[in-house]
Design a protein around this nucleic acid. Structure first.
Length: 107
DNA sequence: TTAGTGACTGGTC
DNA sequence: CGACCAGCCACTA
């Protein structure tokens, strides 16, 4: 687990997010040891679709679907989250702490 | 090469 | 408690 670069690790963690769970960019960045570089996690997610990553399970620390704009349009991200049993209202996850998945804690 | 931008976060006012 | 500022690193023009 030392060959991967920053992006590879981001992809790895994102791919490990279990069904019905969500995490934040900061959590991933912190797990990678780059807590101050949460933006890079978001930038890495730029190729999430190509990497087939469940980017819809990754939101900012507020549980807000900040990146939903990068999805196919509009409510696709919210739709996916709701399909997994996650309550989403106005692009915001309800009970975020309850659905939160911490890579540092789970991994 | 320099400058600008961005799927973020934490602290301060 | 809502809004603003600064730090962070990679990529594009």
């Amino acid at each position: 687990m030392a060959n991967e670069g920053f992006f590879e690790k981001v992809y790895q963690v994102a791919a490990l997010i279990p069904y019905g769970r969500v995490t934040s960019y900061g959590a991933i960045a912190n797990y990678l040891g780059a807590s101050g570089s949460a933006r890079m996690v978001g930038w890495a997610m730029n190729g999430s679709v190509k990497k087939e990553l469940p980017a819809h399970r990754v939101v900012n620390r507020n549980g807000l679907l900040t990146g939903k704009h990068h999805f196919q349009g509009t409510n696709l991200m919210q739709q996916l989250l709701e399909s997994e049993g996650i309550e989403v209202v106005e692009n915001k996850i309800q009970n975020f702490e309850k659905h939160f998945w911490d890579p540092m804690k789970e991994l």
